[in-house]
Write a protein that binds this DNA or RNA. Structure first.
Lengths: 94, 94
DNA sequence: CTATTTTAGTCAAAATTTGTCAAGTCAATA
DNA sequence: TATTGACTTGACAAATTTTGACTAAAATAG
């Protein structure tokens, strides 16, 4: 999800994995895994990517966080119920 | 959240922490932390608790999973946006 | 006050996540 | 067909996080 978006942005600017990896100061193999969703980005990397691609931070951070949420719940039962409950609970607590 | 519910159920039946801990075969201090939300329950414990208190598994598992979600997102920005996005994405994927 | 229950702090073991490296696939092309 | 470049994959060690046990302090009940 966030990985797909980053890949889309990267390919849109004809940047190679290894070039983007260099900009982020990370191993190419790791960035490959991150774009493919095998590994998660760290938040600082998302912020850096927002700068590199001139994207809205909110858009990318939201995608990134949604990924984290789906990963935290994967394989479980009652995911939509729990998501709705979490949303209500969170909004209560504001 | 799930901890509060378990405490409520336990106190409703006048069971001591140490007694419930014994039924779950765990340390009393650990169960105390779990009820207070310092530590997370494991899924098997939730299932066992549903039996002990004759509660619907879905209700307790949903509370438990919502806790996990809130924990995975705590301290982040754009939580409601990400929750909504996760919900849509999840429902798409069915 | 005393006894019991609950909570807090600390620590090592266990589990999970992370980064690196080497080897691998695939497509283009000489 | 052999080579090259881009990307992917799997295995492993290092780093980080989570967990459970233990001890003792704090709170509560009698």
């Amino acid at each position: 999800m966030i990985g797909d978006r980053i890949r889309e942005l990267r390919e849109g600017e004809n940047i190679l994995l290894r070039q983007l990896a260099a900009q982020l100061d990370m191993d190419t193999a790791l960035l490959s895994k991150m774009e493919r969703g095998d590994r998660q980005f760290r938040k600082e990397e998302i912020l850096e990517l927002a700068k590199i691609f001139h994207q809205n931070e909110q858009e990318l951070l939201t995608l990134w966080l949604a990924d984290k949420i789906l990963k935290a719940t994967e394989g479980e039962a009652y995911i939509p119920e729990a998501l709705k409950l979490a949303l209500n609970t969170y909004q209560q607590s504001l």
